[in-house]
């Protein structure tokens, strides 16, 4: 038992007043004190108190070493920042995916000499097809007007003597499956008056797989950087443990349970994760503030329905909860590795 902390004990100049240790006073060491009769309520209150102490104590220790704390928090924050930004980017790109899935349609460009009756007939037969949900007629004039607006080449279109654009029939299929679109195309491509058929399906599919890839990349980065956060806090807690070795030994000798010894370290891991995540959240908001203006302008070119999406409430909560859980888990890794030395 005589190991460890070297003491500074030396025969001091003081001589305790002989009357000081007072035997007549009720001693603190009467066996079987009140504690053995503590009620469940008192015990619960005691346990709550222990948790509060652990939480407060670990915060106080973080505050006592501001530079260390700030650096650890920054590392955690930066590790969490990247996946959060990618998530926001992915969210914004996904808007296009959704609205382009809506534009899943087949264009039948018509011959210029087609008669209105023929168009009417063609349109009716298309509507009767079970794979078709809706048919839209776009006249040559409307196509020219749309093109003028869409391309910004209004002057040139107006300057042309006759409209080079054909009228078209646009079919919206009942579903977004590729073979549905192909069946529809095959059904009507050879009808009289149809000059050309275009299918946007391939393009939509390409965009969708791109978005899926982005999703996977975000997921992989979240995993990798979560591991980073886990090991960063794990290492920080390991150094905390090393610096409090003497205290841990004394506490173990006077009857502290493993849970009691581990608690402040677990709390500091959790704090580190939570505060790191909060810092990451602030950084994300600052960066989004920076991106918002240009991004809004860019999105406006594609139409009013596109809005810049920030970090929503749900994602924010996941970020904070994730940080907390990772910090706790990192601390737990270090603590459990040291546990066996505490007896």
């Amino acid at each position: 038992m005589d190991s460890g902390v070297k003491n500074s004990a030396r025969p001091g100049p003081d001589r305790p007043n002989p009357s000081r240790p007072n035997p007549s006073r009720p001693g603190p060491s009467r066996p079987g004190g009140a504690k053995r009769g503590r009620s469940l309520g008192q015990k619960l209150k005691g346990l709550l108190g222990l948790h509060r102490d652990g939480a407060v104590d670990s915060l106080r220790r973080m505050r006592a070493q501001p530079l260390n704390t700030i650096m650890s928090l920054m590392v955690v924050a930066i590790a969490l920042l990247l996946p959060a930004l990618l998530y926001v980017g992915g969210k914004n790109m996904a808007q296009f995916g959704e609205s382009l899935a809506d534009t899943n349609r087949i264009n039948f460009y018509l011959q210029t000499d087609i008669s209105p009756t023929q168009i009417e007939l063609l349109q009716t037969s298309m509507r009767d097809n079970t794979l078709v949900e809706r048919v839209e007629f776009i006249s040559a004039n409307q196509a020219a007007a749309d093109f003028a607006i869409w391309s910004g080449l209004g002057n040139i279109v107006e300057s042309l003597d006759n409209n080079p654009l054909p009228a078209s029939l646009v079919i919206h299929p009942v579903d977004t499956r590729a073979d549905t679109a192909v069946q529809i195309r095959d059904a009507f491509a050879n009808e009289d008056g149809v000059r050309q058929v275009t299918l946007d399906q391939a393009w939509v599919e390409r965009l969708e797989s791109l978005l899926q890839l982005v999703d996977r990349i975000v997921l992989a980065l979240i995993l990798v950087l979560s591991m980073a956060v886990l090991f960063i806090t794990g290492n920080a807690i390991r150094t905390h443990i090393a610096s409090r070795e003497a205290e841990i030994r004394v506490m173990s000798l006077i009857g502290a349970t493993r849970a009691f010894i581990a608690r402040p370290f677990l709390y500091s891991g959790a704090w580190q994760g939570l505060l790191g995540a909060a810092l990451a959240w602030i950084f994300v908001q600052l960066l989004l503030l920076l991106f918002r203006g240009p991004a809004q302008t860019l999105l406006a070119f594609y139409g009013e329905q596109y809005q810049f999406i920030g970090l929503d409430m749900r994602a924010s909560l996941i970020l904070l909860a994730g940080g907390l859980a990772l910090g706790w888990a990192g601390a737990w890794l270090s603590v459990s590795r040291h546990m066996n030395r505490w007896h």
């Binding site: 902390v5 003491n7 004394v250 009857g255």
Partner: peptide
Amino acid sequence: RRRIGVVFQDHQLL
């Protein structure tokens, strides 16, 4: 251990 008080030579104070 809680039922036993221990006094160390090097007192083990913090």
